[in-house]
């Protein structure tokens, strides 16, 4: 067994929380540039220019690209040959969030009780997804998730008879109804299959894939392509003010399903499609 001190995880998380909020991925920046070149709406072009300038300021000045520095969603892939020592993993992760949000002057956006709504003041608790995998490494991904786009997301228990056309209609309807609210241009994560909670998890996980990435399943890659074309015909455009650049990418993840069920989740991410990862 390889021993890893949990304090090392704390340190990495604190760093990743800041990097994710300061440095927008090159894949997103390139997608903005494509939109700037191809969108025929002058308003769309003006907005995409502002977003490129904003990303540059955030990176250079080490300030968050968006004031909503998100719910800290953390994916941990823990090698089964790793022995964690020196403390509790969950507490070590939350301590990393606490330190990262303080050091980085990031906004604290979490309330401790969803109905009493008192801010915890340190952005904890994080949402943590842990998976045990073969090997002796730990892969950590930090994906701060903004509230505006999360609010436009939905899980629907569809009928198997609804099929691929039903799934497409649902995704298109979600993007259309969300309109300007989730800060387009957006990234759309879709989870199909599994159970109620599993498809929501898949949709979230789909958001971690780089823009332009294709599903390894041929039919699903085709579905992603068709959905991207369809949603960009809606005319919503950057910030919902009209244009062609509504969705930067649609990523679909699938899982086995019950004979009675077709669960589908659509998780929407704003253009601040933030995620950073490291391997310990």
């Amino acid at each position: 067994m390889r021993e890893v001190e949990v304090s090392e995880i704390t340190k990495e998380i604190a760093e990743l929380c800041q990097e994710a909020n300061f440095e927008l991925g090159e894949d997103v920046i390139n997608a903005f540039k494509d939109g700037l070149e191809n969108d025929e709406s002058p308003t769309a072009k003006a907005i995409l220019e502002q977003l490129l300038e904003n990303a540059k300021i955030a990176r250079e000045d080490r300030v968050p690209m968006c004031q909503d520095t998100g719910f800290t969603v953390i994916f941990v892939e823990l090698g089964q040959e790793v022995k964690l020592v020196g403390g509790d993993l969950e507490e070590a992760i939350n301590e990393g969030v606490r330190q990262g949000y303080k050091e980085g002057y990031l906004r604290k956006s979490i309330v401790s009780h969803p109905l009493k709504r008192e801010n915890t003041g340190d952005n904890t608790p994080a949402v943590i997804h842990t998976k045990i995998v073969p090997g002796d490494k730990i892969k950590i991904t930090v994906a701060p998730k903004g509230g505006g786009s999360e609010n436009m997301s939905e899980v629907r228990m569809m009928k198997p008879a609804d099929g691929v056309e039903g799934v497409k209609d649902f995704v298109i309807e979600r993007v259309k109804e969300s309109g300007p609210n989730p800060c387009p241009p957006i990234v759309v994560g879709v989870g199909i299959g599994g159970t109620f909670e599993k498809c929501a998890y898949l949709a979230k996980k789909a958001l971690l894939r780089p823009i332009g990435d294709e599903s390894p399943h041929e039919d699903i890659a085709q579905l992603e392509k068709e959905l991207l074309e369809e949603v960009n015909k809606l005319g919503i455009g950057p910030q919902g003010l009209g244009g062609r650049t509504t969705v930067l990418d649609v990523n679909v993840e699938i899982y086995g399903a019950h004979i009675a069920s077709l669960p589908v989740a659509v998780n929407i991410n704003c253009h601040a499609a933030r995620h950073k990862e490291t391997i310990i």
């Binding site: 907005i47 502002q50 977003l51 300038e53 904003n54 300021i57 955030a58 000045d61 300030v63 968050p64 690209m65 968006c66 004031q67 909503d68 906004r107 604290k108 956006s109 801010n119 003041g121 505006g148 800060c183 910030q239 704003c270 253009h271 601040a272």
Partner: peptide, 25 residues
Amino acid sequence: VGGAAALIAKCIKKAEVVAYEDLGT
């Protein structure tokens, strides 16, 4: 422009809490 938050901050020259300080952000 939603998400152009670093850019917008440059247009804000002064900021002062005038009510409900307990609400933080």
